[in-house]
Simulated scan of single mutants.
Amino acid sequence: MSLWERHKIFETNSLVLFFGALVVIAIGGIVEIVPLFYLKNTIETVDGVRPYTPLELAGRNIYVREGCYNCHSQMVRSLRDEVERYGHYSLAAESMYDRPFQWGSKRTGPDLARVGGKYSDTWHLDHLNAPSSVVPSTVMPAYPWLAETELDIRYIGEDLIVQQTLGVPYTDEMIETARRDAVTQGTLDALDSEGLLERYPNANIRDFTGTVAATGRLTEADALIAYLQSLGTAIDFNLYDDSANIR
């Protein structure tokens, strides 16, 4: 029987073609899926990555609520022009505690994966209140109400519980101290800063908008700026050799 005659069986019989395709797809699926059951984790562990502080998490919720992801991605691709502009390309580990992740696929504004520490708190506050005052060519709308709206942290502990259920390693102590930690991080007179730093190493602790001392209350702008200032700061890439340690 010639090769054509063997192939003709599939060409002229739809059932044989169907089951033949099913077998091929099944084999391909098994080859792709089975190895995953033997992997404990598909994300490599990288030193420095930690869960968000309660204040940063509150800021992240505001970031999502306001739809910032529609114009700003949080993923630096491994392309030369992106790395030169934004810094080291993004690692999966950096988003391991994001629910959901903020990678994005469209940029009207710049990528924010490494925006932490790039600008001052005052710059961020001015950018939220009147974007064109610091970036004249921007098309970003203003968000002045964020600096006027008191931050609601009544349920931040419950938020941490939800994140814990989803796999974020928040401890019972972190959940119990969530409200206090949020206030501590956003004020200059930090009563429990040492405890906060034990729970969340390298967290920024300060009055992000410069108004908390006068008003005695945190605003949504404080939380959002705390979140933005944390982005991309978890890993010290100077400690790694790109060719060996990080891929």
Rank of each mutant, 00 (worst) to 15 (best):
M1K: 04
S2L: 10
S2G: 10
E5L: 15
R6L: 13
H7E: 11
K8S: 15
I9R: 15
I9Y: 12
E11G: 14
S14F: 15
L15H: 14
V16E: 14
F18A: 14
F19M: 14
L22D: 04
L22A: 14
V24S: 06
I27Q: 06
I27M: 11
I27F: 12
I27A: 13
G28S: 11
G29D: 06
I30Q: 07
I30N: 06
I30P: 01
V31Y: 14
E32S: 15
E32W: 15
V34M: 13
L36N: 14
L36D: 12
L39G: 05
T42D: 15
I43A: 06
I43P: 09
T45A: 13
G48S: 10
V49R: 12
L55K: 08
L55S: 07
L57I: 06
L57C: 09
G59L: 12
G59N: 10
R60V: 07
C71H: 06
R77M: 13
L79W: 09
E84P: 00
R85W: 11
H88P: 06
Y89A: 15
Y89R: 13
S90K: 09
A92W: 12
E94P: 13
R99K: 11
F101A: 11
Q102E: 08
G104P: 01
S105D: 05
S105A: 08
R107Q: 13
T108Q: 04
A113N: 10
R114P: 01
V115M: 03
V115C: 04
G117M: 09
S120E: 10
S120M: 12
D126K: 15
N129G: 10
V135I: 13
P136L: 11
S137C: 05
T138C: 11
A142W: 09
Y143H: 10
L146N: 03
D152K: 08
I153K: 01
R154D: 11
Y155R: 10
Y155I: 03
I156Y: 02
E158Q: 12
D159W: 06
V162A: 11
Q164K: 11
Q164F: 02
G167P: 02
G167W: 05
G167T: 08
D172R: 12
E173S: 09
E176F: 10
A178S: 07
A178G: 03
A178E: 02
D181L: 05
T184V: 12
G186K: 02
T187G: 05
A190K: 07
E194L: 11
E194W: 07
L197Q: 10
E198W: 12
Y200G: 07
Y200Q: 08
N202R: 08
I205V: 13
D207G: 07
D207V: 07
D207N: 02
T209L: 04
T211H: 03
A213M: 09
T215V: 00
T219I: 01
E220D: 04
A221K: 01
D222F: 02
A223I: 01
L224Q: 02
L224Y: 01
I225D: 02
A226D: 03
Q229E: 04
S230I: 02
L231D: 00
A234N: 00
D236G: 02
N238W: 03
D241Q: 02
A244T: 10
N245Y: 00
N245C: 00
R247A: 03
